[in-house]
Every structure is written in C-alpha cells, then in structure tokens.
C-alpha cells in the first residue's frame, strides 16, 4: 500500500472518530448534523482510497457511488434542516437540552 493511501486511510479513520465524538457531545442539533456530515465525508474518503484512488488507475464505480452519496447527503441534510426549523418554530428551542430541563 502506498504512503498516500496510508495517509488518507488514517485521515478517514480520524475524521470519522471526530465525527462520532462531535455527535455524542454536541448540545445543539445543528452541530450534530455537522458531525454526521463529517462522518459521511470520512466514509467517502475511505471508499475512494480503498478503490485505488491513491495508486493505479482509479476505479470509477466507487467514484460514481460517492458522487451519488454527496447528493444524497445534501438532500438528507436539507430535509433535516427543514425539520430543525420546524422544531424551533414549534417548541422555541433547537437545543438538545432545553433550558428548563436543567
């Protein structure tokens, strides 16, 4: 395995772990969405690096799947953000711990 592949595989692992950490310790739902998007980005990075992106001819199948994945991610994020605005409108808070629960 080339050094480039090693670097990006480790980066994918690190960013995924950071995303999980962010998801667990975020207080706002918007931050959780950011963390989930980080996890998604790390997964894409892993797929492409394992698909031979670093060395040899690139594999077009994982590239096409990740391209699809990027569009699905923005769709899901947009829907989640619409839900978030509705939540704020309906309850007056978009935090995970409403102030009166503390």
């Amino acid at each position: 395995m080339s050094a480039t592949a090693t670097i990006y595989l480790l980066t994918a692992a690190a960013v995924f772990g950071i995303g999980v950490y962010g998801l667990l310790q975020a207080r706002q739902i918007l931050r959780q969405l950011l963390a989930i998007n980080l996890m998604g980005g790390a997964t894409f990075l892993l797929l492409i690096t394992l698909g031979g992106g670093a060395d040899g001819p690139p594999d077009p199948v994982p590239q096409a799947m990740v391209l699809t994945g990027i569009v699905i991610a923005v769709s899901a994020t947009a829907f989640a953000l619409a839900l978030l605005v509705k939540l704020q409108d309906a309850t007056g808070s978009s935090d995970l711990d409403p102030p009166d629960a503390e």
Binding site: T4, Y8, F44, I48, T49, G53, A54, P58, Q63, V66, L67, I70
Partner: peptide
C-alpha cells in the same frame, strides 16, 4: 483531486 477523482 489528489486521489484522482476530479469529478468528486
């Protein structure tokens, strides 16, 4: 771009 995926 480094991973030979310019479309991405």
């Amino acid at each position: 771009a480094r991973l030979h995926a310019p479309d991405l």
